[in-house]
Amino acid sequence: MVKLSAKCLLAGDPAVGKSALAQMFRNDGAHFQKNYTLTTGIELLVKAISVPETSDSVEFFIFDSAGKDLFSEMLEKLWEQPNVLCLVYDVTNEQSFNNCAKWLEKLRAQAVGMHIPGVLVGNKTDLVGRRVVEQKQAQEWADKHGLEYCEMSVKEMKNFEAPFNILAKSFYQLYKEKVEIFHSLA
């Protein structure tokens, strides 16, 4: 039984649902925060999930980051040495999707030369009539930038575990590959 630990940077524009996702995930879907609270700086949440088809697990240290630019200088320090990325946008807000490029660039700058598994997450799929970013468009952008893609509705408690399952699997895969390399060194 291996327990990996991963620093997960959670980023994206303000009010796309980063904190709602993090809290929902931690509380196993027990509670949807209806009131919006602006995150200033960082909130840290810790939760372990098991890796499917193994007896191993990944403990996530989720750094839920402020979406407002105002706090970005502070973030850079707290973002050091990341292991995985979770980039969230709002499917009803085109700007939040367009800004993902900027967020991704900032996140990747934290670990130049290292492969950092990441997932792009489209939230608020419950607002069907207001949707402006299509799945195909987002999926293509994610592919192009080496990210996995998934959609969810935190409000409807739909699929909120998917991003973390994807990240756990990728991180676990990285570990296995690395151990193979360690074996080959002696």
């Binding site: 630990s5 570990y175 360690f182």
Partner: peptide, 23 residues
């Protein structure tokens, strides 16, 4: 990692190892 425990650093061998598992 039970397969690569830390005791491996002190067993006098280079072919066994300890792996870190995260942050």
């Amino acid at each position: 990692d039970p397969e690569h425990p830390a005791g491996n650093v002190a067993d006098g061998r280079s072919d066994t190892f300890w792996t870190t598992t995260g942050m």
